[in-house]
Simulated assay, not measured.
Amino acid sequence: MTPEELERFLELGREVLAKQPFSVLVGAQLLQLKPGFCELMVPMSEEIQQQHGFVHGGVISYMADNALTFAGGTAMRVPVVTAEFKINYLRPAVGERFIARAAAAYVARSQSVCRCEVFAVKDGQEKLCAMAQGTIAKLGEAPPTGTEMQ
């Protein structure tokens, strides 16, 4: 893809993200998006912490799920949903912001299998705090809408 096509692709992804109320609530931002790859960021805020002061596992899980789905949807270029995913929490999510990076590992007509790593970023250093894998499934036979990435 040309740089202009990649920029438009990212812009379409940001439009999709802006239509997700929960994504807006947690302040999620798409940093990168290209076919089969997604980088999603959520800034730290008091509202997403649990009682011990680190980010709630549900928010980390949301990040992995959404990044996996963007990666799978952009790889298949059709409307998709998450069919299943598994997550391993490796350490408490403590940082200033959190980044989920997902990539499609296997792509077929009706599904893709994707992997994701979620990092806590503190003082410019990334620490891996979760890993996930999921199956992203084609959503029926919906006609193209121009935003087929998720």
Rank of each mutant, 00 (worst) to 15 (best):
V80P: 00
R115F: 07
M44L: 11
V16A: 13
A64P: 06
Q51R: 14
Q150T: 02
M131V: 12
H56I: 02
I87L: 09
P144G: 03
P144H: 10
F70G: 04
Y89A: 03
P144I: 05
V80M: 04
G73R: 02
E148T: 07
N66Y: 04
E5R: 13
T82K: 07
F22N: 01
A104R: 06
K138V: 05
A103H: 13
E11F: 14
E39K: 15
V55D: 00
I99E: 00
V94T: 11
L40G: 01
D65V: 02
C38V: 08
Q29K: 15
V55L: 10
E141S: 10
F22A: 10
E15L: 13
K19G: 12
V81Q: 07
G73Y: 08
M44T: 01
T147E: 08
Q125D: 11
L33C: 08
P143H: 11
A83M: 09
P21R: 02
E5V: 10
L10W: 09
F70K: 01
F37W: 11
K86D: 09
E141D: 15
H52P: 00
D65N: 09
G27P: 00
Q29G: 01
E84W: 01
F98N: 06
Q32K: 14
T145E: 11
Q50I: 08
T147R: 14
F85G: 02
M63F: 04
Q32R: 14
T74I: 09
V78L: 06
T145H: 05
P43M: 09
R115S: 10
T147N: 13
V81C: 00
R14F: 12
K127N: 11
A120E: 07
M41V: 12
V59H: 02
A132E: 04
C114N: 15
P143I: 06
F9S: 09
L40P: 03
I60C: 09
A132Y: 03
L33Q: 02
P143L: 15
R8K: 15
N88Q: 15
E39F: 01
Q150Y: 15
T2Y: 07
C38T: 06
A71N: 09
E84D: 15
T2Q: 10
Q20H: 07
A108F: 06
I99M: 00
F119H: 11
R109A: 15
R101V: 05
V42I: 10
E15K: 13
E47W: 04
V113T: 06
G73D: 09
P43Q: 07
V59L: 07
G53Q: 03
A18W: 10
T74E: 11
E39I: 03
A93M: 11
T135V: 12
T2C: 11
S45N: 05
Y62I: 10
A104T: 13
A67G: 04
G58I: 07
F9A: 03
K34Y: 08
A71P: 06
R77K: 15
F119W: 14
V78Y: 01
C116H: 05
A102N: 07
P144A: 12
P35F: 05
V118F: 05
E46P: 05
Q29I: 00
G140P: 02
S61K: 05
R77E: 13
F9M: 15
C129I: 15
I60S: 05
T147F: 14
S61C: 14
Q125H: 15
S61M: 11
L68E: 05
G27N: 04
K122D: 12
R91K: 14
